[in-house]
Design a protein around this nucleic acid. Structure first.
Lengths: 143, 143
DNA sequence: GTAACTGCAAACCGTTTGCACCCGC
DNA sequence: GCGGGTGCAAACGGTTTGCAGTTAC
């Protein structure tokens, strides 16, 4: 049995999901891609190894990977445009269950003033801190 | 001239945008709403004062407010699902121009271990730090 | 007067769903 | 053999666009 498959098989067992060819190729492809590609980009890449794969399968499995803890969602957001109207500097508490966003006063969690230019040449405008967790409502609610 | 209009007029002058009735009501409504409502929710609220307003106008003006600096987008993301495949703890540099996300090693910007439960009863799982700014490519590129 | 703004309807695009068939366990 | 996975096509929902009429400056 090739190494890749053995490893992937173990990973699936660990996370309680079934092993399929599509799943394995998807996983390997994602691992090999640089940065944070979109589902469409992943789809295009996987298609080179499995031309018949469908975009729906890619979506279903990316979600499965995220739900089962193999990967993580980059940013938890509502999927719709949200705007900041609070002028006072503050951070956000984002509930990973219900996705609600609450403001967190700056002084509960202070952060040093950042350097203006980071080593790589990135020009810093501001730093956004999201505290990800579970809000009181969702803690109380039975799952 | 009522106070609200005078203030809004000044705000528009400051940000270089024209004053319209829809714009003013939209602004006031958004200011008065709690949290971070979606465009649909804002639309529903504004409709109570201007029943004929269209959703397109709401979208156009929210974007205008964001572009001209009256409000700020809550989270800069691609508008599509992105997944974290890098297991090493790190933060992100998000370019506000091209929206690209690059990883930032944890040690360039360290953060104290967070309390597990915040004063409000929020259960913390992890803290996500985004450094928002302009990437080298976009600094070099003529606007 | 003219450029910008509004409202409408249609188009768009990323994502999800229902279903018939197929495959892993 | 059965339950879950796959591929397809159609549906969905949030957002954008083109356009004709209207308004701000």
């Amino acid at each position: 049995m090739p190494d890749g498959l053995r490893t992937f098989r173990e990973l699936c067992t660990q996370h309680g999901i079934a092993v399929t060819h599509q799943r394995q190729v998807l996983y390997e492809t994602m691992q090999s891609m640089y940065g944070h590609p979109s589902p469409e980009e992943v789809f295009a890449a996987v298609k080179q190894r499995i031309p018949s794969i469908s975009l729906a399968t890619v979506y279903k499995n990316i979600h499965l990977f995220v739900e089962s803890g193999v990967f993580r969602e980059l940013s938890i957001h509502h999927g719709t445009l949200r705007v900041e109207m609070n002028k006072v500097p503050h951070h956000h508490m984002v509930c990973s269950v219900c996705k609600k966003v609450a403001d967190l006063p700056d002084d509960e969690l202070s952060l040093q003033t950042a350097p203006t230019i980071l080593p790589g040449g990135f020009l810093v405008e501001r730093i956004s801190v999201d505290v990800i967790g579970v809000c009181p409502d969702c803690q109380a609610r039975p799952n």
